[in-house]
Design a protein around this nucleic acid. Structure first.
Lengths: 348, 348
DNA sequence: GCACGGCTTGTAATCGTTTACAAGCCCCTA
DNA sequence: TAGGGGCTTGTAAACGATTACAAGCCGTGC
């Protein structure tokens, strides 16, 4: 009917009360008398009123939104995590803005733009490669909204965060391979400076030692978490004279690229080489052979990060500033005893 | 230094002008004198001023944001498209909100909540399964922000949209298979009511006829675009007595699930059955065998949808209300002549 | 000398909400 | 009957920007 959208004034007029009462009836129903409350609700229904967020945000000096900073929006790894974030945030009235930190030439300028409490009420940073200096500068320059790290983190800053036990994931992978009888295990690592790469590589090295093996440089391949880098590592594996019988990959995408490229060269997985991934992305269970991998609870990770942030935004102090979620090994069919143990059984 | 964040008042004071002049210097620099403009810019730098979006939005009666409604945030298919959308929108000062239409029990209520011009300045709807009635009700009930369809669409509504030529994609796939000598071609379809499923299935049926084949019901498998449904279809294929020698899958995810499951049952691709996918997602080129598929320009699709929406939001009339982007066949190694043609060559 | 128009600037209203403060009402107690 | 306290409500001032309108200044033409 009415062209103009209803405002709180219209509701007040219809209900025969003041705008203050309408506002209170909607936000703190407890303090208004029951009859008034009912009249207000009826007027709201009659007018079709919904709150104007811009006005509310202006008055309350908040933005109503949370920004998630991911390295690259197009990376599907984050989609499930962000789904968890959104699911936790939206019942609380926050909307989720997703921005990437790495695309475009002026990425740093845009990042700094987000480090400002007028843009968002809170930030979730999924990118540990943001230079610490930038962040520190942002922290000191102006009021910074509450910030939490998720997945990745930046050392030396006292910022709460949620992550998984990356080193433990690597240990599980090595223990599984060692249990199958492998004594020659290589590692396809993530991008060199990345905290996840470092943690997983550290857990890998430590677990090797614990099982009486030692890390060999020529069996360590640098990757960058992408399919392409997995395929590239396969080339390097093929060129080796003395090859590892198993490779622990720091991501499923790399593992898929690695396995796919090997198979195209006639190498059989797991007969010729066992492969363990990391992440347990959807496709891992559907490729052939299905990939043995380390599961990380992505949805929960997003939910926990959002919950941490909401506590911070509410001004509460966190019970735990550092949340570490457990991982678990998902045994599928890309791992088996090494060829020299051919008499042994396949992976249980 | 200063605790409080700077407002336009602070800038005005420092520059020695009125707030109106500051506002003009920033939004319409042409109308202020050069000396004044410089003074204002200097003051902006000195104070570290950035605009308060809530205040601007309130005054301008806009929200500054665009909502993308996708069926499911966690579906990686959309990530690249959304990346294109965000890239186009953000230079224009819009931020992108991503919401899903299918998760949660009160999904419909939430959807209706977005059909309101106070929530967003524009909407991009990626879900053709929203009941037409809901949308029509939303359209009539209150002022609706500009809306465009992307990828999917809803028939019978005069809403502009961007999509790819789905039928042509199916035709390319069939032509490719027919060219290899296949005369027994099956189809793994998307979810039954979906517009993409329907268009692709229609293009498939039409192309079969054009090549002198006919569609057989027992060679048509229902899927839902997921990996699991592809694996399930593989079971059905295995149970067939009389099998097609090639299968055109309506999505790459299904194709991957299908191929993976077949391989685990010892069926060789493409020797025993050729498979064509649709979408050309990243993994398609990395599985073994690499998947022959129909490429759709996902980033461009997002960009075009965003551009359409921006025109609408600017009040312009669109030069083309219906944008159809071309597709192309990417020939890889999951297709080959059928076994009966064993003498023939592999796919070029 | 005056009117006029172009350029630039300031004044002040406005967007729609929330919320500090004050005030009205009613009941109870002294 | 006065006073106090609890409950409920209204008044009006914010929040920080944009913009319609008016006005000042200056040069030009008659």
């Amino acid at each position: 009917m009415n062209r103009r959208t209803a405002t709180i004034q219209d509701v007040a007029r219809v209900a025969g009360v003041s705008t203050a009462t309408v506002s209170r009836a909607l936000s703190t129903p407890g303090v208004v008398a029951e009859t008034t409350r009912k009249a207000v609700f009826a007027a709201v229904r009659e007018t079709g009123y919904t709150v104007n967020q811009a006005a509310r945000n202006l008055r309350q000096r908040r933005t109503g939104s949370v920004v998630a900073l991911v390295p690259n929006i197009a990376n599907p790894f984050f989609s499930r995590i962000l789904s968890g974030v959104a699911a936790t945030l939206s019942p609380a009235g926050y909307s989720l803005l997703i921005a990437d930190t790495q695309s475009g030439p002026e990425a740093e300028a845009r990042l700094m733009g987000y480090l400002d409490d007028r843009r968002a009420d809170g930030l979730i940073l999924f990118d540990g490669s943001v230079p610490r200096a930038h962040l520190a500068r942002g922290l000191s320059a102006r009021p910074l909204p509450p910030l939490v790290f998720a997945c990745e983190w930046i050392g030396g800053l006292d910022v709460p965060g949620v992550r998984i036990d990356n080193a433990e994931g690597a240990r599980l992978a090595v223990a599984h391979l060692a249990g199958l009888g492998h004594t020659r295990i290589g590692h396809l690592a993530g991008p060199p400076g990345n905290v996840l790469s470092i943690s997983r590589a550290a857990g890998f090295a430590e677990a090797l030692k614990a099982h009486g093996m030692e890390k060999r440089e020529e069996w360590t391949f640098d990757g960058d978490f992408t399919l392409d880098s997995g395929a590239f590592a396969a080339q390097r594996w093929l060129e080796l004279g003395d090859r590892p019988t198993a490779v622990f990959c720091a991501s499923d995408e790399m593992a898929c690229g690695f396995v796919g490229a090997l198979q195209r060269h006639g190498v059989r997985v797991p007969e010729d080489v066992s492969v363990v991934g990391f992440d347990n992305i959807e496709i891992a269970g559907h490729v052939s052979p299905p990939l043995t991998t380390v599961r990380q609870p992505r949805t929960e990770l997003g939910e926990r990060a959002a919950a941490q942030l909401m506590s911070l935004m509410a001004g509460k102090t966190l019970e735990a500033r550092e949340v570490v979620l457990p991982v678990e090994l998902v045994e599928r069919e890309s791992t088996a005893p090494p060829a020299s143990h051919a008499a042994g059984d396949a992976a249980s």
